Amino acid sequence: MFTGLVSDVGRIVAASAGDKLRRFRIASAYDPASIALGASIACSGPCLTAVGSGPREGGSWFDVDVAAETLARTNAAGWGEGTRLNLERSLKIGDELGGHIVTGHVDGVAEIAAREEVTGGGKGGPTARFVLRAPAELMRFIAEKGSITLDGTSLTVNAVEGDTFSVLLIPHTLAVTTWGDRRAGDRVNLEVDLMARYAARLVEAGQGR
């Protein structure tokens, strides 16, 4: 389990090719002693397993294997050397739940339809509003003021209209995640709120009686 609060931005320093399985080596600022073999780390959304790790200048590196299902359901097929990823370590009992409950199981990919700089001139920099287009089958789980996870980041939905929804990112989030680099046309990993999924299933079950 995760919270959607990004704790580091990693960078892919090596990538293997393959249709069914790809291995990525990710450089991070994490303490190498804290990454155990088999540790779960959310990498811009999908929960991946560390299959190797070691020290490097400024932090550590760890390897993850991405299988065919994840390559098909996420934007990982487009990852390569130099790709920056939002990282989060798995939640521990007693940790503060500052975002919302995130599983690391990506439901699909949304496309950024527009980016608008909302404010400027402040010491922290501009705020940005992103309008995203999601797959039709996922839009029923997305509600105004509800939670959503995009590229591993816990965000609040500002508005929903047709097949699009919008989120607002403050300067801090833009600075400490990959969102500062995001532009119209980019594809991001989307995980719907777990509670919204179960609520929709309960409604469906009740209608089927």
Rank of each mutant, 00 (worst) to 15 (best):
S40C: 14
G45Q: 06
G121A: 12
E191L: 00
I93C: 13
A29K: 12
L174N: 04
I112Q: 03
L21F: 05
S60F: 14
E117L: 13
V131H: 01
A200V: 04
R209P: 05
R133I: 04
E96A: 13
G59K: 10
G59P: 09
R84D: 10
D19E: 09
L202A: 11
V131G: 02
G104S: 04
H172E: 13
R201G: 00
R187S: 14
G98P: 13
D8Q: 06
G59M: 11
P32E: 14
T164I: 00
E69G: 15
V118L: 05
A72D: 15
G108A: 04
I101D: 04
A200M: 14
E111N: 05
A72N: 14
A175G: 04
L194S: 03
L5K: 09
P135F: 09
M1P: 14
M139P: 04
I35T: 14
R73C: 11
T177C: 08
F2Y: 13
R129K: 01
V6A: 07
L169A: 12
L21T: 10
I112F: 04
S7C: 10
A113W: 00
L91H: 09
V157K: 06
R89D: 10
G125F: 08
T178V: 10
V192L: 00
D163E: 11
A14M: 10
V203H: 11
G58I: 08
R129C: 03
V160K: 02
G58D: 10
V160D: 01
E111H: 03
